[in-house]
């Protein structure tokens, strides 16, 4: 998406969304002993060789990088489940399948940092890419059916998908809203008062619009 680094256009950067996903728990199998870790974000461990433990993804990746554990890919990342989800996505054009809120970020992080722990990684990877493409295409086609409304509900939309469609959806809904309520709605504020210095152009509008209130 264009302008992803601009916080006014895209609310969260991909890095920030990844940061949130890194708190999701995964199962690791350590190959060393370590005392319990009493973190601010929670208590994890103790760790014993070959005994699986649940830890946040960032911790799993840190241990993995140092060769201290293997990561067990989550259950939903099995070829069986992914095939099932992909079929579901293709069959039902109106709805989304249930996938974890951070499925894109989690799978991406695991592909980058724990590729040797994922059986049939090429297959898994291409399935997830297909699921992602089908879903994004589905969001786009569903957006064509948009109409003037004060709310749009999409079940099972994931974090990254929300972020990708947000600029368009928000502006489209605002445009509809603006046409329904011509008085109250001002132009997208991200443009007009991005900086305090540029606020003057916005002003006469407020003043002039007041008298128009009675339609």
């Amino acid at each position: 998406m264009a302008g992803q680094s601009d916080p006014h256009i895209s609310l969260f950067s991909p890095e920030e969304i990844e940061f949130m996903a890194e708190d999701e728990l995964v199962e690791i199998v350590p190959n060393m002993r370590m005392d319990p870790l009493n973190f601010i974000s929670g208590d994890f461990g103790p760790f014993f060789p070959q005994i699986p433990a649940n830890v946040p993804l960032w911790l799993a990746m840190a241990l993995k990088k140092r060769g201290k554990c293997t990561i067990r890919p989550p259950q939903w990342m099995s070829i069986e489940n992914l095939t099932h989800v992909l079929e579901g996505e293709r069959e039902d054009q109106g709805a989304f399948q249930a996938v974890p809120f951070h499925y894109i970020e989690i799978s991406r992080l695991l592909f980058d940092h724990a590729r040797d722990d994922i059986p049939d990684i090429y297959m898994v990877r291409s399935l997830i890419e297909d699921i992602r493409d089908v879903r994004l295409h589905k969001v786009e086609t569903n957006l064509e059916k948009f109409s003037a409304t004060s709310a749009v509900k999409i079940a099972h939309l994931s974090a990254m998908e929300v972020n990708v469609v947000r600029p368009f959806v928000v502006r489209a809904l605002q445009a509809f809203y603006k046409h329904d309520n011509p008085v109250v709605m001002s132009d997208s504020d991200s443009v007009t008062d991005r900086q305090p210095q540029t606020r003057q152009p916005q002003v006469p509008r407020n003043a002039q619009r007041q008298p128009l209130k009675r339609r």
Binding site: A98, A151, V152, K153, I154, A155, H156, V162, V169, L173
Partner: peptide, 13 residues
């Protein structure tokens, strides 16, 4: 009313 469950994402005013 708009009814939302945990897995729903809504764009709302």
């Amino acid at each position: 009313p708009l009814e939302m469950e945990r897995h729903d994402v809504s764009f709302v005013l």
